[in-house]
């Protein structure tokens, strides 16, 4: 790890000011991605701005017909929240699949969404449920937020404060784990909303999380695994690496989508 200066933010305004005034700053949330990256010297910020002491940005609430989750809510808090479990069980289930128990005690939803790892779980839930990412500056629809591999719409001095997930009629997630890292080799999130159907895929996209419109069309007739019989996703443009070829991932998308639909019906 290269040397840096540690700054503890006591509020969001102060954190924003620090981001604006310090040389080469980086926010620290759960540290479960940033610290390993700094150890590998893949990141070497001059200043760390720690969000952990800021109060009131980890709350989980039901507001109207949306579950609103504070950026600093830990994965374990989302997984165990009665509000999430009752309103969007698939989201609680997804949070409980991230990493291991100790990682879930530290890692945050804001950190995961800001990081936009192509194999991370939360981006699939955000895109699949049509979530809104709320920042210190604006509200960004999930469809506009995830820009590519580790790329988001966030500006340098912008902080995610909350994520708002509209409650779906039905939702399900299925994750096929990478046997080594336990991240998603492929993960599919499906949701039936009053106005639309969404199918979001993580782990497989050449440029991160994406929607499968052909599956969404087919599911309009009936929101059931059978509706996807015979449908496939082209391997063209999908990620391929030592863990699985693009063709293998294309196949897994179909399998995971069906299993997510089965889970959504339970």
């Amino acid at each position: 790890m290269y040397a840096f200066t540690y700054n503890r933010a006591s509020g969001l305004r102060q954190a924003t000011n620090l981001l604006g005034s310090l040389d080469d700053p980086k926010l620290l949330a759960g540290g479960q991605t940033l610290l390993p990256t700094m150890k590998q010297r893949l990141a070497s910020p001059a200043n760390i701005v720690d969000l952990n002491m800021i109060e009131g940005i980890a709350d989980i609430e039901l507001k109207g017909r949306s579950v609103v989750i504070g950026a600093m809510a830990r994965h374990a808090e989302v997984a165990n929240s009665p509000i999430v479990q009752q309103n969007i069980p698939a989201l609680a289930y997804l949070a409980g699949l991230i990493g291991d128990p100790a990682v879930r005690h530290r890692g945050t939803i804001g950190g995961s969404v800001a990081n936009n790892d192509p194999n991370a779980d939360y981006p699939a839930a955000c895109l699949g449920l049509g979530a809104t990412i709320i920042t210190t500056k604006r509200k960004i629809a999930a469809d506009e937020f995830f820009k590519g591999l580790f790329e988001t719409a966030l500006e340098g001095d912008e902080i995610i404060t909350k994520i708002s997930f509209p409650v779906a009629k039905k939702a399900g997630y299925y994750k096929f784990r990478n046997q080594a890292s336990r991240f998603a080799l492929v993960g599919v999130f499906v949701a039936k909303r009053p106005s639309e159907i969404r199918v979001a895929v993580t782990g497989a996209g050449g440029s991160g999380v994406f929607r499968v419109t052909s599956f969404e069309e087919a599911l309009k007739k009936r929101f059931s695994p059978k509706s996807l019989d015979g449908l496939t996703v082209p391997a063209n443009g999908l990620a391929g690496d030592i863990h699985g070829s693009a063709e293998y991932r294309a196949h897994l998308i179909g399998v995971c989508a069906k299993r997510a639909l089965e889970a959504a019906d339970k």
Binding site: Q32, L35, P36, K39, A102, H105, R106
Partner: peptide, 28 residues
């Protein structure tokens, strides 16, 4: 030292945490 093995697990405010993936200053 890469957050995988769990040899470094301690309890922080009653919860298991990997202490190799945490800055001491963050735990004031």
């Amino acid at each position: 030292d890469t957050s995988q093995c769990g040899a470094c697990v301690v309890h922080v405010n009653g919860k298991a945490v990997k202490s190799c993936t945490a800055l001491a200053l963050g735990f004031d």
